[in-house]
Simulated assay, not measured.
Amino acid sequence: MKRTIILFFLLVSELNSFSQNLSDSAYIQVTYKEDFARSPDSPKKMEFDEMVLNIGNLCSEFYSKRENQIQHIRDSVFALGGDISQAASLVADIPRSYQYYHVYKNYPSEGMLTYTDKVLFDSYRYEEPLEKPLWNLLSERKDIQGYSCQKALAAFKGRKWTAWYTTEIPISDGPWKLSGLPGLILDAVDSDSLYHFYCVGIRQLKESIPINIKRKFIKCSKQELYGKRKQLDEDLVASLKSMPHITNVIMKDPEKTTKKYIDMEVPEPTKK
Rank of each mutant, 00 (worst) to 15 (best):
M1G: 14
F8A: 10
E14Q: 13
S17N: 09
S19I: 01
Q20C: 04
Q20E: 14
Q20D: 12
Y27E: 03
V30C: 06
K33N: 14
E34C: 04
E34F: 00
D35N: 07
D35V: 01
A37W: 00
S39N: 12
P40T: 07
D41G: 04
P43A: 05
P43Y: 08
M46F: 06
E47M: 09
F48P: 01
F48S: 11
D49F: 05
N54F: 00
I55S: 10
I55T: 11
I55M: 15
I55C: 14
G56Y: 08
G56R: 08
S64E: 04
K65E: 13
R66H: 12
N68C: 08
N68A: 15
Q69F: 09
I73Y: 05
I73F: 11
R74W: 03
V77M: 08
V77Q: 01
I84S: 07
S85D: 13
A88V: 00
A88D: 14
A88C: 00
S89W: 00
L90T: 01
D93I: 10
P95M: 06
R96Y: 01
S97D: 04
Y101D: 12
Y101W: 10
Y104C: 05
Y104G: 01
K105V: 07
N106Q: 08
N106W: 11
S109M: 12
E110A: 13
M112V: 13
T114N: 07
Y115S: 04
D117M: 02
V119H: 02
L120N: 00
R125M: 13
E127Q: 10
L130P: 04
P133M: 06
N136V: 15
L138D: 12
D143S: 14
D143E: 15
I144S: 08
I144K: 08
I144Y: 07
Q145K: 14
Q145H: 11
G146F: 08
Y147D: 12
C149V: 13
C149P: 10
C149R: 09
Q150F: 13
G158D: 07
R159K: 03
T162D: 04
T167G: 14
I169Q: 02
D173Y: 04
G174W: 03
P175L: 00
W176D: 03
W176H: 05
K177P: 00
L178F: 01
L178N: 02
G180C: 04
P182L: 02
G183C: 07
V189P: 05
D190M: 08
D190G: 07
D192E: 15
D192Y: 14
S193V: 03
L194D: 13
C199M: 03
G201D: 13
Q204G: 03
S208D: 05
R215C: 03
S221N: 02
E224N: 11
L225P: 09
Y226L: 12
Y226M: 09
G227M: 02
K228M: 12
Q231M: 14
E234W: 06
D235N: 15
D235W: 06
S239Y: 05
K241A: 15
S242W: 03
M243I: 11
T247N: 12
N248D: 10
V249H: 09
K252H: 08
D253E: 13
P254R: 10
K256G: 01
K256D: 10
T257Y: 13
T257S: 11
